[in-house]
Design a protein around this nucleic acid. Structure first.
Lengths: 132, 132
DNA sequence: CGGCATCCGTTCCGATACTG
DNA sequence: CAGTATCGGAACGGATGCCG
């Protein structure tokens, strides 16, 4: 994204009260991808924000090994989780939320709560919209 | 998504404390797409949660006409915004957040706040990760 | 066990052109 | 002004096979 609009009055960076719309967008691509939030929340709910690879794989129905790996890598790169390899045979790998990652739990749960409360109304709106 | 895992102990629908992981995922695809959040927040910040098409187009740098239209349609379908057409020449169309849409503002701002506070740390983590 | 590499279909989305 | 239609590249993500 180039530096876009000189007219800050209509720049959402101004309008929305934050400085870096690209940062927001980058987070949102992470938040919005298919598995990141489920992964973070699942990791949080498992014993002390810590779990091994296979446990996560079993705890998130439908995720493929590939996407679990990729999602874990991205979150590790963002500093939200830490990876620890135990050099055993067979190998054991454990993932744990960092403090940064844990700090994301509350805002994420805010979203989840909204869904829980309002999803039925969203569904009704969709049905009504589609009937026309 | 098939009905997946019978073992609810490891079903994130159970683990994360919500009933409908598909609903969560469907919201997240909306939340996570390139423009929805910016659009909702921009609409909220403009005069009384209401703006016309061209105003939104100018307020969101980088959005294409096509994506603005599509994003507006999807949000309208979800019941988060309402569209009002004034049959003038040239036509005028105004969009407004519904109460349902406004109720999403707070959790969204929770996310934005998190980004504002923590993005620098995320960036440092990324740089450090990439240097290896 | 916990990956990585490859292939491949699907979806996303920007660019462009056209319209009431 | 506020759209719609079409095209094509890019990104996403599932399936499969291999490997230390």
């Amino acid at each position: 994204m180039e530096n876009a609009n000189k007219n800050n009055h209509f720049n959402p960076a101004f309008v929305c009260g934050y400085k870096d719309p690209d940062a927001v967008r980058e987070l949102l691509t992470r938040v919005g991808d298919r598995w990141s939030i489920l992964l973070i929340l699942t990791l949080f709910k498992l014993h002390e924000s810590r779990a091994r690879f296979s446990e996560l794989e079993n705890s998130i129905p439908g995720i493929s090994q590939r996407m679990l790996t990729l999602t874990l890598r991205n979150l590790e790169r963002d500093g939200l989780i830490e990876r620890e390899l135990f050099p055993e045979v067979p190998p054991r790998v454990e993932y744990e939320l960092t403090n940064l990652g844990k700090s994301l739990i509350r805002p994420l749960e805010g979203l989840i709560d909204w869904v829980t409360i309002n999803w039925e109304e969203v569904n009704k709106a969709q049905v009504q919209y589609d009937s026309k």
